[in-house]
């Protein structure tokens, strides 16, 4: 087990750093030392920062759209009196268990401008005159992000539902006796109690959302014209693209290291927030 851990977890991390100092196409040992050349190239590459920006946008959408929306639905589904809540939960969770790459392709077909289901529906009810080119350069990014939210929504929902379960019933009863209405209860009881877990959910959502490789690769391969490129597809292109004559492993590693370092810093920035909430929660 220790052998596996060293070979597949520690070694790859160290090796990524090591390879990133070489101009290396993966054939034979890495010998062509270029120092920080790859890093300089990554940092100066507009395409890399563009991909990075897109990855970051995916996170922002997950945090500022998916999380609040899931919380709202979770509050609704948490109400004991709501009929069919288990069925709703099941339906909203279903996409989570399915294969992202397959889902991406199903959506690509449904959103096709020529005869796809969504455009067929929109034109037949008269909402749009001409079919929307969902996966064109200008609309592809929001489209893929929307599918990403669709796919990940259920898991965030379950997180919030679990958080809501931790609110003790007697708090609600006390609030009722004190004559608080629904909104006041939510504002002063529910939200403060679940806030510490909310920070954990934030962290989990952030980590999950930074890597939308499967979906992007399946739907658009980062295109058209790199409009939906994220860091993972960017790295994939430099290292594994079958149409590439010589892979650039060293450069791809450097891009991975830069991205890894920045995400680590961003995760670490959430650390103090996490600790403060944790302390608050345990008090």
């Amino acid at each position: 087990m220790l052998l596996l851990f060293v070979a597949f977890t520690l070694w790859p991390m160290v090796a990524s750093w090591w390879y990133s100092f070489f101009d290396w196409d993966g054939v034979g040992p890495a010998t062509d030392w270029v120092g920080f050349g790859n890093f300089a190239e990554v940092l100066q590459s507009g395409a890399f920062w563009h991909a990075f920006g897109n990855s970051f946008l995916f996170s922002l959408v997950a945090i500022f759209v998916e999380m609040p929306l899931a919380l709202l639905v979770a509050i609704l589904l948490n109400s004991q009196r709501l009929r069919g809540r288990n069925l709703y939960r099941l339906f909203l969770f279903l996409p989570v268990v399915t294969t992202t790459a397959v889902i991406g392709i199903v959506f690509a077909i449904m959103l096709d401008p020529a005869g796809g289901f969504v455009n067929g529906l929109l034109t037949s009810v008269g909402l749009v005159d001409a079919p929307i080119t969902f996966l064109s350069e200008s609309y592809a990014l929001p489209t893929v992000m929307a599918v990403d939210v669709w796919k990940g929504f259920g898991i965030t929902l379950i997180y919030w539902l679990a958080a809501l379960q931790t609110v003790p019933d007697d708090l609600y009863e006390a609030a009722k006796i004190d004559g608080a209405n629904g909104r006041q209860t939510l504002r002063h009881i529910t939200l403060p109690v679940i806030a510490p877990i909310g920070v954990v959910i934030l962290l989990l959502t952030f980590q999950k959302s930074m890597n939308p490789f499967d979906l992007v690769q399946a739907m658009t391969e980062g295109g058209p014209n790199h409009a939906t490129d994220v860091v993972a597809t960017y790295i994939y292109r430099y290292a594994f693209d079958p149409y590439l004559n010589a892979p650039r492993y060293g450069f791809a590693c450097a891009a991975g290291v830069v991205f890894g370092a920045i995400t680590l810093v961003m995760t670490a920035l959430q650390g103090p927030l996490l600790r403060r909430q944790y302390l608050k929660g345990s008090r």
């Binding site: 790859p12 991390m13 991975g256 995760t267």
Partner: peptide, 23 residues
Amino acid sequence: IVGLLIATMFIPHGYTIIPIFKL
């Protein structure tokens, strides 16, 4: 060992595919 394991949870991976591939 436990500390190391937990630490790797927070270090972003998924970008270490190239060394794993070479291995």
